[in-house]
């Protein structure tokens, strides 16, 4: 596993944050997880702004786990801005959300999301979903920008 790469988790709900971290841990995914609690914070992190002023923006997360319902700037807008910026255009983004509404699915894929995972209520299923995510995005998939 690529231990140098961080995982950016954009999640405003502390319970979901804890459960996601737990699921990652249970699947022995030991990458550093940077948590942004709203959309603005996520963008600040990615573009080195706000409290992340001065961060080396050339270092991108291995994968971004993005919730849709977020304070300040919602998930779809964050995704739109990621895809609009050349630095982050190819950043792998997985939408990880409660919603299975078709409109969100369609909007997500049309904005260029790499994957769309619905958080199940059943924690066992949730852990399984995170495992498959980690398997694909952290182990199998080569980040195109880093070849």
């Amino acid at each position: 596993m690529n231990r140098e790469k961080v995982i950016l988790l954009v999640e405003d709900n502390p319970d979901d944050e804890a459960l996601t971290l737990r699921a990652l841990a249970k699947n022995r995914i030991t990458n550093e997880v940077v948590v942004a609690h709203d959309g603005l914070e996520a963008l600040d992190y990615l573009f080195g702004a706000g409290e992340h002023e001065g961060r080396d923006t050339s270092v991108l997360p291995q994968v971004t786990l993005l919730d849709l319902k977020l304070p300040k700037i919602d998930g779809l807008e964050v995704l739109r801005r990621i895809r609009a910026d050349d630095r982050t255009r190819l950043l792998p983004v997985v939408i990880l959300t409660s919603s299975k509404e078709e409109q969100d699915l369609v909007a997500g894929y049309s904005l260029g999301v790499n994957s769309y995972v619905r958080k199940p209520v059943d924690f066992v299923e949730f852990t399984e979903a995170v495992r498959q995510l980690g398997l694909y995005w952290l182990i199998l998939n080569e980040n195109p920008g880093r070849v």
Binding site: N13, D15, D16, L19, R22, L68, K69, T97, S98, S99, K100, E101, K119, P120, V121, D122, F123, V124, F126
Partner: peptide
């Protein structure tokens, strides 16, 4: 409303289930 239900009603259920499992 449905959107909210789908989103917000499920989040606490996930907490209940997840932390029970924990």
């Amino acid at each position: 409303f449905s959107y909210s239900v789908s989103h917000d009603l499920r989040a606490p259920l996930r907490s209940i289930d997840g932390f029970s499992q924990a």
